[in-house]
Design a protein around this nucleic acid. Structure first.
Lengths: 106, 106
DNA sequence: AATTCGTTTAGTCAATAGCCTAATTATCTA
DNA sequence: TAGATAATTAGGCTATTGACTAAACGAATT
């Protein structure tokens, strides 16, 4: 159930985009909204879905709500899932790391 | 787009269950179907969604179609996504590994 | 030729997702 | 206190999703 909720939150173009923004910096709801051609309430809904899944958190400071990513949750969730579903994960993970390294260098 | 498709495929209880079965062994469509209280066409749809997302593959052998998980795809997709969205991922990953190790020992 | 495995197509239905506008709440400012 | 601003909540509308049944189909076995 928890994993489904996490994946549901991630299964959306605008929500992945929000997470990409928040991976670089904390932003207010308004700042995020500026970057989308979408009504504010719709965006607010996306934010609440992400927050509800534990992927981001919003902290109210005066008039504004500052949203930021919760990296621990994303990493541990996806990482944990991989461990469950991929028993032979370790070598693949090393391979993946090697590939990433090669791309960065090449 | 590709990530959205992957997450959409994963955002479903029955589909996560199918992947869990396939993480242990290759199974035919019928063997999978036996484990669900669901009409065959519905299950067939789930299988095609997973296959279309590149998470599983079906190989026809005679009358049967043998499905198996494509671990490389799952690992590389989720791993790749984590690298994009979590710049400070590395230390967290180590922490996660340490936690997993502790649990296995405890 | 008949049966089995599995998919596909078509039609129906209920529930959910995603968007909108309008209204509301909370806070700041003059 | 009135007015402006930030963001959410509420309500409505449409499209999609996910399930079902029933029927048909292709491919392989018997």
């Amino acid at each position: 159930m928890r994993m489904v909720k996490t994946f549901e939150a991630l299964a959306s173009e605008p929500r992945l985009k929000i997470l990409a923004y928040l991976s670089k910096a904390t932003m207010t709801a308004g700042e995020i909204a500026e970057r989308f051609d979408m009504a504010k309430p719709s965006l607010s809904k996306h934010l609440s879905i992400l927050e509800n899944a534990g992927l981001i958190t919003g902290v109210k400071k005066g008039k504004f709500i500052h949203y930021s990513i919760i990296q621990d949750h994303i990493v541990n969730s996806l990482d944990g899932y991989l461990q469950e579903v991929c028993p032979t994960r370790k070598p693949l993970r090393e391979e993946s790391a090697a590939k990433a390294k090669g791309e960065a260098e090449g």
